[in-house]
């Protein structure tokens, strides 16, 4: 790693101030950023650790029934604390391994927007709102491609609000070495319609599969997806799987997610 200073602010306001420094970078749980730093793929002058900010951790149900999760809440805490939203709790319980889940955070995952991360699919299918120190961003506007989000420089994900669907499930086809999703599909049946979000598959990061959503709005069954397929074009094509394979697996995982949600 290159040398840098590490700051540990105790409040969001102090973190935002610290992130105003030249070449400052926010540090969530570090489960992606620290390996990145070791490879010298990033060279911040100062890392602003968000792990000591009590106001950014915890889970509660809001008056409108949505689930509010602090941006600094770990995957392990969501796995046991999001029991009113089993689909999301299941997603959190399947990330990485136990030690990774004890450090990695929901805010860190969403801010990084790795194209194979699980949380982007959960947030997009839920129709979540990403709350920052400055504003509220709907998930549909938040994800903007590989490792790209609507976040401005120095903006911190302080909270994520997940509307709780009537039924939901996340199915992940794991890349066995990294445990990231080769393909992951989150299906959420809301009162106003079904949302299907796919991670791991597309060269443009997480996306909604609108044809599957239309079919599932007619009938929320795995059979409703029979005959539906995605084009291989635009899918990730690498040593772990071809574009055509990922397109195929997406359809399979979507069916499994619907079956699990029913």
């Amino acid at each position: 790693m290159y040398a840098f200073d590490l700051e540990r602010p105790a409040t969001v306001a102090d973190a935002v101030t610290a992130l105003g420094a030249d070449e400052a970078q926010a540090l969530g749980g570090g489960q992606t950023l620290i390996p990145t730093l070791k490879q010298r793929l990033a060279s911040p002058s100062v890392l602003v650790s968000l792990s000591g900010i009590a106001e950014m951790t915890g889970i509660c149900t809001r008056d409108d029934g949505s689930l509010a999760i602090g941006g600094g809440t770990t995957h392990a805490a969501v796995a046991v604390g999001a029991d009113v939203f089993p689909g999301l709790a299941g997603l959190a319980a399947g990330i990485g391994d136990p030690a990774v889940r004890n450090r990695g955070t929901v805010g860190g995952s969403l801010a990084n927007n790795d194209p194979s991360a699980c949380y982007p699919a959960g947030a997009l299918a839920s129709g979540a709102t990403i709350v920052t120190n400055a504003r509220e961003i709907p998930a549909d506007d938040y994800f903007q491609g590989l490792f790209t989000t609507a976040l401005e420089e120095g903006e911190v994900v302080t909270e994520v609000r997940f509307p709780v669907p009537e039924a939901s499930a996340y199915m992940k086809f794991e890349q066995p070495a990294s445990r990231f999703a080769l393909v992951g599909v989150f299906v959420a049946k809301h009162a106003d319609g079904v949302r299907v979000a796919v991670t791991g598959a597309s060269e443009n990061g997480v996306f909604r599969w609108s044809e599957a959503e239309a079919a599932l709005n007619d009938s929320f069954t795995a059979d409703a997806l029979n005959g539906l397929s995605l084009p291989a074009e635009g899918m990730i094509n690498d040593l772990h799987g071809s574009d055509a394979y990922r397109a195929h697996i997406t359809a399979v995982m979507t069916k499994r997610a619907v079956t699990a949600a029913c």
């Binding site: 590490l6 570090g30 489960q31 620290i34 390996p35 792990s51 392990a76 030690a99 990774v100 450090r103």
Partner: peptide, 27 residues
């Protein structure tokens, strides 16, 4: 491995299992 894959560096921090190669001492 020093890449948070292998778990040989696992310790408990405040009762939670973590990989000590993927956490800073200051944290």
């Amino acid at each position: 491995c020093d890449t948070s894959q292998c778990g040989a560096c696992s310790v408990h921090v405040d009762g939670k299992l973590v990989k000590s190669c993927t956490m800073f001492a200051a944290e």
